[in-house]
Amino acid sequence: MTEMLIEAKGLARHYLVGRHRVLRALDGVDLGVARGATLGLVGESGSGKSTLGRTLVGLQKPSLGQVLFEGKDTATPEPSFMARLRRERQIIFQDPSGALNPRMTIGATVMEHLRVQGWSRADAQSQAAAAIEQAGLATSFLSRYPHEISGGQRQRAVIARAISTDPAFIVADEPVSALDVSIRAQIMNLLHQLQRERGLTMLFISHDLSVVAHMCSDVAVMHLGRIVERAPRAALFKTPRHPYTGALLSAIPIPDPVRERQRMRIILKGEVPNPANKPSGCSFHTRCPRATELCHRVDPPLRSIGTEHQIACHHPLE
């Protein structure tokens, strides 16, 4: 068995909406990422991907379940383990400008991040410069404010901050969606290099499936707070078994005007389920073309089909 660097066990996160309703943003997630691996996480907008990412790096407490780091529970760590957890787990936030303080220069932001982790002033300064260059920006950007740089440049500043502490595990929440294809390619190549050279472990959240195909060895698909499919990259893209995954793959835009305008999409019809009032049975059944009476009643558990392929579905695609 490969060693899991980080693992979610029965992870749930509940939010109160209004006064009485409970929204289960995570509803029993079991998921491990092996050391050095990059797991892709895809799924519908609002399905709980960012919530899972934030919970894995300890920014949010789970309502139920555990997060294990190197096999140890992270809920009540001793002080030395706590300090390591803070350094070793980093997140690249989905929203680049919300992640940067508008009143601080990029350099001050990265420095502060390092100082909090106990770096000396001088070391933090040179480390910040190194990180900003690794993220593909000139060191002159250290003295700029977030509003003075473009969207893509802000995203690279956020990446620089995350890699500055030399972490073991990074949650990258849509790290390249604000970037143009050429710079996106540079950042993807940079993240690959960090994987190879430092053995970086990543949870890579993205809506861009071609980027996921490129970055990740395994892919997990989320729907309404649950993992509904997980498989090695090739198997997931070639033979998706969950109908939601099938619909998702069919909707990927093709960068060719002739093919793009002719191809067929599986269009999801029916009511978008309310996460604060989930339907009975399988949470996808209101929109699933294969749903039967069984799916209305019984919620399918995540089960193994084949050695590394898991799905939660009563009527998988062939």
Binding site: G43, S45, E174, S177, H207, L209, L248, A251, P253, R265
Partner: peptide, 12 residues
Amino acid sequence: EPTTALDVTVQA
């Protein structure tokens, strides 16, 4: 960039 934060089905 109206759809960068959306999955491909919602984007469509």
